[in-house]
């Protein structure tokens, strides 16, 4: 008998002999993918919470409301077509982010302040 893994949350499912992917030609594209951002309460930034499929922006916004704010998680929503997001690549990680590492003088803790000086 093929192996079963319970790791998949709702209980044991077969893993051996189960393909991960279909062939490209039989894949019927779903509605476009949208990224969802929720403002949890006034005064906070919108934060990425996940994604969903919708045929257009108006429906995406409504689906986001139904899916991501069922438990009063938000007061404002953004939806963005996933294809419109440009992301930095992990390959560029070193050149993008490492050079900031030695500029410690940008942080207030870099500076020595004599004892007793307040409001600084």
């Amino acid at each position: 008998m093929s192996d079963l893994q319970a790791g998949g949350g709702h209980g044991a499912v077969p893993v051996t002999g189960v393909p991960a992917r279909g062939s490209a030609e039989e894949s019927r594209r779903d509605w476009p993918l949208w990224e969802v951002f929720v403002r949890a309460k006034r005064g906070l930034n919108h934060v990425h919470v996940g994604s969903l499929h919708a045929p257009d922006a108006a429906m995406a916004l409504r689906n986001a409301r139904d899916l991501y704010t069922r438990r009063q998680e938000g007061v404002s929503l953004w939806v963005v077509p996933a294809a419109s997001i440009t992301a930095s690549s992990p390959d560029e990680k070193d050149s993008f982010f490492d050079p900031a590492g030695d500029k410690i003088y940008r942080h207030p803790t870099f500076y020595d302040i004599p004892e007793g000086v307040e409001h600084l």
């Binding site: 509605w31 499929h53 689906n63 139904d66 899916l67 069922r70």
Partner: peptide, 10 residues
């Protein structure tokens, strides 16, 4: 559609 299951549920 799955999204609609959630919507009609609401």
């Amino acid at each position: 559609q799955l999204e609609e299951d959630v919507a009609v549920g609401n």
